[in-house]
Design a protein around this nucleic acid. Structure first.
Length: 610
RNA sequence: GCCCCCGUAGCUCAGUGGAUAGAGCACCGGCCUCCGGAGCCGGAAGCGUAGGUUCGAUUCCUACCGGGGGUACCA
């Protein structure tokens, strides 16, 4: 459990002092907990230790709180302490503490908010996400996992861990053959069956492969040739594709047969092409995977057989009806799972096991899976598989995210790859942009279903909160540019008198800036990106208020202030105003840095101008 | 049937046992002679229902109501 006192030496010291105060008062020892009060009047930190101790100590909470206050020696950075409500002990930090925060932010730059961990504390985390089958383009729903997984990875890095972003490519087995068959049939202008993949992209692939490998590529042994006029064929096929898709379940099946070896070959080529396209779209979204793990390669290497052997040797398996089962119920699964079918072919589940083994052997200390709710049924068997392979229970974390509800004008749009009726991620990115799309997904909890109404998102893109945050950043950049243009003498940070920052808006912003390290730690622990987006919005809000209420640069308009101020202003007052301006300038610079650091973790761009 | 997620303001959502439950959108009323109005300030409005645990419950437990998803020798 991340505790705020682990992140802040001042708070750690305060915790020690509270413990000592309890001892000095003759009260039972207790770990004081700290939380940030909602109301600013309640100070910067509060502990409920008096409330918790009331029962074991047999004393009224307020009495205990009073005893703490009477006996505590406050650290220098803590200005005051008082008791409130039923027995809260509230602490207020000194202004010097916040001045120090500004200095730390400017000194640490990009590192502010990030955690440095010792070797022993640092994990090597593998996070697997998206992993959509490479038999079709990514749809909008996958965008949620792309955005969330990538930002979680950045978040865990910020929390001081090593992270590997991984995509498991299901490029083996029956579906690849069927995928290849679909391409061949379309290339030949034949009808597709109910189980075939449909959609314009199949036609595109057929064209592409024909161009690359030549007209004869799709020639079948029985004399069926790839039609000479590709254009006409294409139109025909596309039309038929649509008809068949609309036809639905009473489909009678494909009009032609495809040789298994050709289907496999074409499937392999098609999958490779689709994988590249998927990688392109993800890159457009700013997501770069470290590892594209091929299931086929794993099969070819014999790793699946080895894993099955290993499981057999460990006594985790048994045979029944000619099939080999993994005894997953021993680890809480609903039913035992088949590893090898009675016909000798390994199941996908066997590959999943082998994949686990591979990942674990690559020296990861923690495995995270980000899965959609449609895969919820897999959790039990995946957990069991990991345990069977000797991966400790707490080293595997499977996070289920609720699905994205794709709408268009309030009407549901089906997202079925086979039916070919899907709205692809690249279309959406092109239409509304990567930042808006990402932020939209990152803003909500994984537990909540997201409505993605294409019409609404396009309409609302200008009022998306991401612009609110980015605007704050652009605004500060503009301020800095203007300061430079006018030759504003902001001096160095250590020359600025930050003690002058005492206006409510200034204090609010200072407090908010100080929160980042703990927001990062909490978000990382909970794997919750929405903690970061909320913080970003709060920070932007604090800045906007500060900017509105607190003039930073001196007015460039001599007439503007001449009538009253210039005449009445003494040198002393003018010097004070200048000093305040310099302090505010550095506060704005610190805010800019923190906004940038948050946006970096969200992996949303921080524009200098908008 | 069993399992998982959700139910918080008119709408979309935050809030991992603490004090007076917060944002955005929408609505109403204000705010720039000057650093970016994509902004700021103010107003109205809410924890599905019923029990339980606790000093304290939106949060944890149970039941019920309502919505979504999952339950293959599929891939």
């Amino acid at each position: 459990m991340a505790r705020p006192e682990d992140l802040d030496p001042v708070l750690a010291e305060l915790a020690t002092r509270v413990t000592k105060a309890l001892e000095a008062a003759g009260l039972p020892g207790a770990e004081p907990d700290f939380e940030r009060p909602r109301q600013p009047e309640h100070g910067d930190w509060a502990t409920t230790v008096a409330l918790r101790l009331a029962k074991p100590a047999q004393r009224a909470p307020r009495d205990i709180a009073q005893a703490v206050v009477d006996h505590i020696e406050l650290p220098a950075a803590v200005q005051s302490v008082d008791i409130a409500g039923p027995g809260f002990v509230n602490f207020r930090l000194s202004h010097a503490y916040f001045e120090d925060v500004v200095e730390r932010i400017v000194a640490q730059g990009d590192r502010y908010g990030r955690r440095q961990r010792d070797e022993g504390q640092r994990e090597m985390i593998n996070i697997e996400f998206v992993s959509a089958n490479p038999t079709g383009p990514l749809h909008v729903g996958s965008g949620r996992w792309a955005a969330t997984g990538d930002s979680l990875a950045a978040l865990l890095e910020a929390d001081g861990h090593g992270v590997v972003r991984e995509y498991y490519v299901n490029d083996a087995g029956e579906q690849v053959r069927r995928f290849g068959e679909s391409i061949v049939l379309v290339a030949r202008g034949e009808l597709l069956g109910e189980d075939h993949y449909k959609g314009e992209y199949i036609l595109d692939l057929a064209r592409e492969i024909r161009l690359e490998f030549g007209d004869d590529f799709f020639v079948a042994g029985d004399g069926i040739h790839f039609p000479e006029d590709a254009h006409i064929t294409g139109e025909l096929s596309a039309q038929r594709v649509r008809e068949r898709a609309a036809d639905g379940p009473h489909d009678t099946g494909a009009s032609g047969m495809v040789e298994p070896t050709l289907a496999a070959k074409v499937g392999e080529i098609g999958v490779r092409k689709m994988r590249d396209r998927i990688a392109d779209v993800l890159r457009d979204m700013g997501v770069e995977f470290d590892v594209w793990f091929s299931e086929r390669v794993m099969h070819d290497s014999g790793a699946v057989e080895q894993t099955i052997d290993e499981l057999r040797e460990k006594g985790e398996t048994y045979e029944q009806d000619g099939a080999l089962f993994l005894h997953t119920t021993a680890y809480g699964d609903d039913k035992d799972r088949v590893l090898v079918r009675s016909d000798g072919r390994p199941t996908y589940f066997a590959a999943d096991c082998a994949y686990f083994r591979d990942k674990w052997q690559r020296d990861h200390t923690r495995l995270i899976y980000l899965l959609g709710a449609d895969h919820h049924g897999y959790v039990g068997r995946l957990q069991a598989a990991a345990r069977s392979l000797g991966i400790p229970e707490d080293r595997l974390e499977i996070r289920i995210g609720q699905l994205v509800n794709l709408l268009r004008g309030g009407e549901p749009v089906r997202m079925s790859k086979r039916a070919g009726e899907l709205v692809t991620l690249d279309e959406v990115i092109e239409e509304v942009g990567s930042d808006v799309t990402r932020y939209h997904f990152l803003r909500q909890s994984l537990d909540s279903m997201i409505d993605f109404d294409l019409d609404e998102v396009v309409k609302q893109s200008m009022e998306n909160p991401v612009y609110y945050v980015q605007y704050a950043y652009a605004r500060i950049n503009s301020l800095v540019r203007t300061a430079d243009d006018r030759g504003f003498a902001h001096g160095e940070l250590d020359e600025a008198d930050l003690g002058r920052l005492t206006a409510p808006a200034e204090l609010e912003l200072l407090r908010k800036l100080a929160e980042l390290p703990e927001v990062v730690a909490e978000a990382a622990e909970l794997l919750a990106t929405q903690r970061l987006t909320r913080y970003a919005e709060e920070l932007a809000s604090s800045f906007h208020r500060f900017y509105t209420e607190c003039r930073i640069l001196p007015s460039d308009d001599p007439d503007a202030s001449s009538s009253t101020t210039l005449l009445d202003t003494t040198d002393e007052e003018r010097a004070a105003a200048e000093a305040l301006g310099r302090a505010r300038y550095w506060l704005a610079v610190a805010a800019k840095q923190v906004l940038r650091n948050v946006l970096d973790i969200l992996r949303v761009s921080a524009p200098e101008r908008m």
